[in-house]
């Protein structure tokens, strides 16, 4: 839950930066750590939707799925849905990481923070889902 809240915060900042601030009409220096280069690249949006907004949606949904009452719910739909959502996040992170490293040739530290939080969420979700008893165990 903490990772979801943190991710929501960082994704919110990136979304705010995407839609505001005249400083985004400038290119940063010529180095590998270059947030502007990443956030203004062609990979910064998918079908016209900013990736930052997609991140915001991801963390908002994940925050709901990570709430304690949701973890107490034994329905397979909730458990599998949460796991699937974490996998979606993981896939997106791997794609964006690949794009940063091999296509854009630059890394955005804010984006990296989002990636790390998504990986943490994936890890904790997978572990908690596998460690908690599944529905059939509860019935048994």
């Amino acid at each position: 839950m903490v990772a979801s809240v943190a991710g929501l915060g960082v994704a919110g900042y990136l979304t705010y930066e995407h839609f505001t601030s005249s400083s985004t009409l400038a290119c940063s220096d010529n180095s590998v750590v270059n947030c502007l280069k990443v956030t203004t690249s062609s990979y910064s949006s998918v079908a016209g939707v900013p990736v930052a907004v997609l991140g915001l949606v991801f963390f908002a949904v994940m925050l709901v799925l990570q709430l304690p009452p949701m973890w107490r719910r034994p329905e397979p739909a909730v458990r599998i849905g949460r796991l699937a959502w974490a996998v979606v996040g993981l896939g997106t992170v791997l794609y964006l990481l690949y794009a940063e490293l091999f296509s854009i040739d630059a890394i955005c530290l804010w984006c990296t923070a989002v990636h790390v939080l998504t990986l943490v969420l994936f890890g904790t979700t997978v572990y908690a889902t596998s460690a908690y008893p599944v529905l059939e165990d509860v019935d048994a």
Partner: peptide, 17 residues
């Protein structure tokens, strides 16, 4: 055994990532 197996799958998935 089932839980251990599931947990092992989970840890393996995390390790793979």
């Amino acid at each position: 055994a089932r839980r251990a197996r599931t947990r092992a799958y989970g840890i393996a998935a995390i390790a793979l990532v």
